[in-house]
């Protein structure tokens, strides 16, 4: 990431863990509908938001991403019924904990986007990208290689 820091035209790298059944499909819909959103997100498809180990988030930050987004089905709509409800508890605590140790809360974001919300997916990505951009390149927890 070193080259990024000196660069005026720095663009953040954001990892988005998207659940296969809702957010990923929503992202697909955004694509099919040709809705524009910033190209800063790298989408990783996961079976369910409940599949996202909190470690993935921490590890992504260590590997140098500037922001992490985890997104799944709205509560009550999870393909596996309750995966997102467990996820919600985990991430409520994770986000608080990371903020407590001094990691900016805007670096770790969570959202619900359903398969029919292509526009909302684009808005979430815009919103997250804007916030991460405002923070600048990640410099905490980042492993220098």
């Amino acid at each position: 990431m070193a080259e990024n820091k000196s660069n005026e035209n720095w663009e953040p790298k954001i990892v988005a863990f998207c659940c296969n059944w809702c957010t990923y499909t929503g992202a697909d819909l955004a694509g099919i509908s040709r809705i524009q959103y910033p190209p800063n997100v790298r989408v990783i498809r996961v079976p369910c938001s409940g599949r996202v180990n909190p470690f993935y988030v921490v590890k992504a930050l260590q590997e140098g991403v500037d922001g992490v987004l985890v997104s799944g089905c709205h509560p009550g709509e999870c393909h596996y019924i309750t995966g997102n409800l467990s996820a919600r508890r985990k991430f409520a605590m994770l986000k608080n904990f990371l903020t407590y140790i001094g990691i900016d809360p805007d670096r770790t974001m969570f959202s619900w986007v359903s398969a029919s919300e292509g526009e909302k997916f684009a808005q979430v990505v815009r919103g997250v990208t804007e916030r991460v951009k405002a923070l600048g390149p990640a410099n905490k927890l980042v492993k220098k290689v």
């Binding site: 969570f110 619900w112 808005q123 919103g127």
Partner: peptide, 8 residues
């Protein structure tokens, strides 16, 4: 779920 991000 206050921490869940909702775009404006």
């Amino acid at each position: 779920e206050k921490f869940i991000f909702e775009p404006e």
